[in-house]
Write a protein that binds this DNA or RNA. Structure first.
Lengths: 110, 110
DNA sequence: GATTATTATCGACAAATCAGAACATTATGA
DNA sequence: TCATAATGTTCTGATTTGTCGATAATAATC
């Protein structure tokens, strides 16, 4: 099966969607990524990834009401799905296991 | 992609090189990835990634002696460099921070 | 109604990854 | 010494993922 993996940016964006709930929309994600991860990405990249994540059923989205704030198009809010969370968890636990192995060998590595 | 980030597979392979020290060569990495990560990759992909990681100075390699065992070409062993380890660490700590945020919101997510 | 701020969408391309064929090297045994 | 099996690496082309600039849409403000 192809297209079954989370790419590097995809994982980061997915994680950010989760960590921003329920205020996850593209510009906020972009900002969070820049601040917390030092990862600078152009807005349209975020959108591209978000669309792909939605196709993979890892997030779902809904348009917000037009806020009484400043002008602008209505926001599209994203939410992580159970499948998305699960994918994230699986990745993390496996990666952590490898980390465990590596740390045991550290004396040799340093 | 300006070649400055660790791709998804790149990170996994780098981690595996570290966790396999000092016996990390392509076929062993492939096997480890399949067993520990459920990540099935073709050998040539591993080689491609290893080459890229070496260009980025995240691993270094050396050919092993021709072993007196079965036939075959001599193995090329890879080792993680301090820079490689550092890159891995930086990624992990930032990602873990996002995880922390997300977990706090879990009650809402479930 | 024009201007400005804000966000989403589109289209094209670059880099990373995948997949398998081709190639190289060494041990073994007839 | 030749054929063959075992083991690894390199090459080539296709697909997926990442990046970016340009454009369209929506709403407040002047």
């Amino acid at each position: 099966m192809r297209g079954e993996h989370l790419g590097e940016l995809e994982e980061l964006v997915l994680l950010t969607v989760g960590s921003l709930y329920p205020e996850a929309y593209a510009p906020a994600i972009k900002k969070e990524l820049a601040e917390k991860m030092d990862r600078k990405v152009v807005l349209s990249s975020i959108h591209t990834v978000l669309t792909r994540l939605e196709n993979k059923q890892f997030v779902k989205s809904a348009f917000g009401e037009s806020t009484p704030e400043r002008g602008g198009k209505r926001k599209r809010f994203f939410e992580i799905t159970p499948q998305g969370f699960q994918a994230l968890e699986a990745l993390k636990s496996k990666r952590d296991a490898l980390w465990g192995n590596m740390l045991q060998l550290m004396p040799n590595l340093s």
